[in-house]
Design a binder for these strands. Structure first.
Length: 405
RNA sequence: GCACAGGUGGGUGAGUGGUUAAAGCCAACAGACUGUAAAUCUGUCCCUCCUAGCGAGGUACGAAGGUUCGAAUCCUUCCCUGUGCA
């Protein structure tokens, strides 16, 4: 078994689900903090756990370059290496095809990259990306795709989408042949009791015990591309679904297009994805957006926003954004967010947080990140709660104006 | 008291006769950040005015005077700071 997904409640397009992976059971819709280099920047794993994160991301490209897949594998896989017992998802490196575009050369076989660390040359293909992700051993791994640039002309978008489809088939083929080679099957698996215990109590019965038996393996998700073209998105979705994956991602969005357009494309693409499989919207978004997309039926989302913004002094609260470096907070004794129960809001004033940030203290980044992650994870928890009460999509302010049970 | 070395915009610190309202850095202020090449990046940062522009005035490199078409830059005097010697 790779994963088990069950939709427990549907309300309009909104759905409440439970996703059992080899290491943890995850309540959906879920927000997944990003931990690119096997670290959610600034926050130690025990605190990420405490914040309620059920699954976090790692990045194949980064971990392949450093410390190297072999080292992670020999350390028992990514879970054990970074001491994270809950679920992990690795991105394939497809996004780096996009974001490191100046450092790469692309053809049918794959992509030749120059390392952003030392300029050395490396080759990524669907097969090598799978091999790397199997070596890392995340619960969910991603097909190797080409994240289409924006803006791009129609021909380019189609070519990119078709390449992604062919790469998806190759990714799956390689994965099927090698999926048994995950590192944690050769090691004792850490206890998952706590992971199970974190599940929301509100929604339904736990569906499947976390499965760390000898048959347990990873799940490979396919990725839909197609730029901002609804037809290409449809075609991409259909082709990806035809190949067949236990979950589907919508990629290639939030790459500079207007937000309105993102929403349209997500809405139309969701139509073509199976309702009984988890749907993962990659790289999205702001607090308002994650609420909105959860309301549209997206089950999984990840975004760098809470962690990066925190490091840059931008904090999310139930009352809107706060740029903690602003002079207006210099003597503000209030917590960041009076409605937030996180350890930062319970203990520190805005004045103090501003001081730490202005002083370039590392703790500013740590505390800010803890708050932002807490805010995102809490927001999602509230969304789930809302759905469990039979409410469809709600706005961020509505989500935050009511107490959680 | 004598001898050196200095006094530049909020701070440092370039500039030693002509696109110098004055580099760079820092601070300050504002903005951005969406599958992380990001503890990053961008803008503003003397005053006033407007048709808001590589626009028009004004003020400015310790003070006052002078030389010069032109001075932060050269000269004189004064004031102040640091170091050394009495």
């Amino acid at each position: 078994m790779s994963i088990n997904f069950q939709v427990n409640q549907v309300c309009g397009r909104t759905r409440l689900g439970r996703l059992a992976t080899s290491h943890a059971v995850i309540d959906t819709p879920v927000f997944m903090p990003v931990g690119t280099v096997a670290s959610v920047k600034g926050v130690p794993q025990d605190i990420v756990e405490e914040l309620g994160a059920q699954i976090i991301l790692g990045n194949t490209y980064h971990l392949y370059l450093r410390p190297g897949v072999e080292i992670v594998r020999r350390m028992g896989g990514l879970h054990r290496f970074m001491s994270w017992d809950r679920a992990l998802l690795t991105d394939s490196g497809g996004f780096q095809v996009f974001s490191l575009s100046e450092l790469r050369k692309l053809n049918e076989d794959g992509v030749t990259f120059r390392s952003h660390l030392d300029g050395s040359s490396h080759f990524f293909s669907p097969e090598s990306a799978m091999a790397a992700q199997i070596g890392l051993g995340a619960d969910i791994i991603m097909a190797f795709d080409e994240c289409t640039e924006y803006p791009a002309d129609a021909g380019r978008v189609r070519a990119s989408m078709e390449m992604t489809a062919r790469w998806a088939a190759r990714s799956k083929k390689y994965f099927e042949q090698h999926k048994g080679e995950v590192p944690w099957r050769q090691h004792s698996v850490p206890s998952t009791q706590y992971s199970v215990a974190i599940c929301d109590s509100v929604a339904g019965q736990p569906i499947a015990a976390v499965n760390t038996s000898s048959e347990a393996t990873q799940a490979l998700f396919g990725i839909v591309q197609g730029g901002m073209d609804r037809e290409l998105r449809r075609e991409s979705a259909e082709r990806t679904v035809e190949i067949g994956f236990p979950g589907y991602a919508i990629g290639g969005l939030s790459v500079g297009e207007p937000r309105e357009l993102t929403r349209e494309i997500v809405a139309s693409t969701l139509e073509y994805l199976p309702k009984d499989k988890p749907r993962y919207l990659m790289g999205v978004g702001n607090p308002e957006e994650i609420v909105q997309y959860a309301g549209m039926g997206v089950d999984m989302m990840d975004c760098v926003q809470p962690t990066r913004a925190a490091r840059h002094g931008l904090l999310f609260t139930s009352e809107g954004k706060i740029s903690i470096k602003q002079a207006r907070y210099a003597e503000d004794p209030e917590p960041l967010d009076p409605n937030c129960g996180c350890r930062v809001c319970q203990r520190y004033s805005r004045a103090y947080l501003r001081h730490l940030f202005a002083s370039n203290e590392l703790s500013a980044q740590v505390l800010n990140t803890i708050h932002n992650l807490s805010f995102y994870l809490d927001t999602m928890k509230r969304v789930r709660h809302s759905i469990s009460l039979g409410e469809e999509s709600r706005s961020l302010s509505a989500i935050w104006s009511r107490p959680t049970a």
